[in-house]
Amino acid sequence: MSEENKNPVTEKIESTKGGHFYKEIMKDFRIKESLHGCLNCGTCVANCPAAAFYDYSPREVCQMIIEGDEETIEEYMKSKIWNCAQCYSCKYRCPKENSAADIVMAMREIAVREGLAAEALAGYTRIAKLVLTRGNQLAPDMLSPDAFPDWGPRMIELSSKKMEMREELFEGFPGMNVVDRAWAAEDYTIYEMQKIWEESGALEKVGTVFPFLVDIVQDDMEEKAEEMEAKIQEKKEKLEASKK
């Protein structure tokens, strides 16, 4: 954090409060940008869709960090943070430019890291697997009528005809007519994505919720490593040459 970005509100809080989760949250540099004091005016709550239906309040999120209230923080870490819709309506409307959505995001990261997210992420396996093995997040195959019965009868019809419909739509657009992923990202591209997750420490974090996925990704990477690393070496040499 540069000198000019110091935030007197969060600095004061940091120096006076305690608690494990609180300290972990304050390590995230986004918190300094997300809290500038809170008027308790409730504008954020009035605009929050999650507050309309759940026991969740963006005002409480800001207040609990300002107060360093470990008991409420723990309550949020264990379940309430997963109610936030991440719509940033709170940030957009707050007269103090606070962002409860960003604080919640920092807390979700910590919840995963600390092994508190297993229940919240049950049912999320297929997305995580797709991200790590295909390079994108959604596939036509995942949108089965069984999984989305509330999307109505037309989903059943669409699902049964999707192959021929996509073939017609994407004629002349290679790589677009696939159903096990959103588009046919190349193997080299997927390897680069996996390497980013590994090098950034994100893959290790995935292991706290989905340990088997780490094995799948590492096996996949190992299988391709020789060929892919040779390509990366070529790229590195090309980049170095361009700098000279």
Binding site: M105, R108, V112, Y124, V131, P174, A184, V206, V209
Partner: peptide
């Protein structure tokens, strides 16, 4: 075809990453 998803949907939904 050498692009990936931004992975922001995953990030905001799950906190993975």
């Amino acid at each position: 075809m050498q692009q990936t998803s931004c992975t922001a949907w995953n990030y905001h939904a799950s906190g993975l990453g």
